[in-house]
């Protein structure tokens, strides 16, 4: 019983943070929606939920890596738009898709490099990267248009063995993230670095002989690559390049990560929590669409949720 209450409140003694409560929220929202509107339990709507949720799940999982070590990446929204713009440039898929990942890795590397080598605050580094990428995206594609390679479209819209493709995207994303976070030394080192940062001893992990800078850079590369993956998925859904498709996505991703019990100051959090957090956001969006809530006020509601979630997390540090 005490173990359960500890899980619920996310008290110390767990590194996974509070994830059971958001899971209950997911179920509660689902229950409420199925009682409220007939369309929710409709097979078509349920089938749509997975592709609707997928870009956020992928981005949030990437964002979680940098948040765990006490960082933040505000450039993922622009990264998503940028990816759709690159895919819509009109070239062969075999060149465009690897190019997208190489570019994402480059952006992630720049973020990490600037943060670790020049002592720039992650928020400032990634905020400026957000604008630089947005500018480049608008040069490539001032308004939405162009066409993305067919293979991208069918990889999102089609199905395999009767199972819709987005499910496989989800499986691959989670498998890769699970391996990185729980099945490698890198994952443990992420928690170690975050543990040092959030307890105020920035070089604690370094003193244990961990190559902290390299791991931090790697986390930003992973974050950017996951954003690129989300961008490819979105490009497949909208079938074109759109300079605004990723707008404010970084905030949704941060909200999802925070809802899932991951502490924004680092060190505490979990992959399943993040997925649950993303599902909360996706279900909310789905429910608001079904109940005809104005898309404008949806932005406001999402912002208010973010405010609420971060206000509930206590933090020692003040400021940025």
């Amino acid at each position: 019983m005490t173990a359960i209450s500890r899980r619920l409140t996310g008290a110390r003694g767990s590194r996974q943070g509070m994830w059971l409560l958001p899971l209950l929220i997911v179920l509660a929202i689902a229950l409420w929606l199925s009682l409220q509107t007939a369309q929710f339990l409709n097979g078509e709507n349920l089938l749509n939920l997975v592709p609707q949720a997928m870009p956020l799940v992928i981005t949030a999982v990437g964002q979680m890596f940098v948040i765990l070590l006490g960082g933040l990446d505000l450039s993922v929204g622009s990264m998503i738009s940028f990816t759709t713009a690159v895919l819509a440039l009109g070239g062969p898929a075999w060149a465009l898709i690897p190019a997208v990942f190489v570019l994402a890795a480059l952006v992630g590397f720049s973020n990490g490099f600037i943060i670790t080598r020049f002592n720039v605050h992650p928020i400032i580094a990634t905020l400026s990267m957000q604008y630089i990428l947005l500018g480049i995206t608008r040069v490539l594609r001032p308004v939405s248009g162009g066409t993305v390679p067919d293979i991208v479209i069918s990889a999102v819209a089609g199905s395999f063995l009767g199972i819709p493709m987005p499910v496989f995207w989800g499986i691959v994303t989670l498998a890769v993230a699970w391996k990185l976070l729980y099945g490698s030394r890198f994952g443990l080192h992420l928690f170690a670095i975050g543990g040092g940062v959030s307890s105020g001893v920035e070089d604690a992990a370094h003193n244990f002989g961990i190559a902290d800078r390299r791991n931090i850079v790697l986390a930003y590369v992973i974050c950017a690559c996951f954003a690129a993956l989300a961008g490819i998925f979105l490009a497949g859904r909208i079938v074109s390049g759109d300079p605004n498709v990723g707008l404010l996505f970084e905030l949704d991703a941060i909200t999802a990560v925070a809802i899932g019990g991951t502490q924004l100051s680092g060190a505490i959090g979990s992959l399943h929590g993040t997925v649950i957090g993303a599902l909360v956001m996706a279900l909310l969006a789905n429910g608001m669409n079904l109940t005809n809530v104005s898309p404008f006020i949806q932005t406001t509601i999402k912002g208010a949720i973010l405010l609420l979630v971060v206000a509930l997390q206590s933090r020692k540090k003040m400021g940025l």
Binding site: L74, L127, S314
Partner: peptide, 19 residues
């Protein structure tokens, strides 16, 4: 509350814009 200033003010910003 000692919440991250970037997140608070960004969120307040989009709440107002959406409104």
């Amino acid at each position: 509350r000692r919440v991250s200033a970037v997140i608070v003010t960004l969120a307040v910003g989009i709440v107002l814009v959406g409104f």
